[in-house]
């Protein structure tokens, strides 16, 4: 609803991007968003609403773990980390994505 059209993440890939971001180290929500933005060089910009919903889903699916930590400023911060199941899912999705992307790239080339 509030997403700006140009920053939409491709349908169904948000989970994969989150898992990828978390594969390096545990992170809090904003960190994940920043990581996705930075590594995509600003192509993908995710808004907190979508991201929090995705976190909730991934957590319930057992792909990520969440833990509350205390920040220096005394606030509570929720830190997410990848579970074993999450890592496996990331590997599967990456392999599948690579295959698909390659196929789409070939198709587009053939057309041109």
């Amino acid at each position: 609803m509030h997403d700006e059209p140009s920053t939409d993440v491709i349908q169904g890939t948000l989970d994969m991007l989150i898992l990828k971001a978390l594969s390096l180290e545990p992170m809090h929500g904003f960190g994940i968003a920043r990581r996705i933005e930075q590594t995509s060089r600003g192509v993908f910009k995710v808004n907190p609403g979508s991201l929090l919903i995705a976190f909730q889903r991934l957590e319930r699916d057992g792909l990520v773990d969440a833990a509350w930590q205390q920040t220096e400023s005394g606030r509570r911060a929720k830190v997410y980390s990848l579970t074993r199941a999450g890592r496996k899912r990331l590997d599967d999705e990456t392999a599948q994505w690579t295959r698909r992307a390659a196929a789409v790239a070939r198709l587009l080339k053939a057309d041109a």
Partner: peptide, 29 residues
């Protein structure tokens, strides 16, 4: 997990809301 999470939200609505608020506040910080 879906069931227990959902039930926790249902039964302890205020606490679930606070969690979301805290996470958002941290995000804004």
């Amino acid at each position: 997990r879906h069931l227990t999470h959902g039930l926790r939200v249902l039964t302890r609505r205020a606490s679930a809301d606070r969690d979301i608020d805290d996470e958002l506040r941290h995000w804004i910080d």
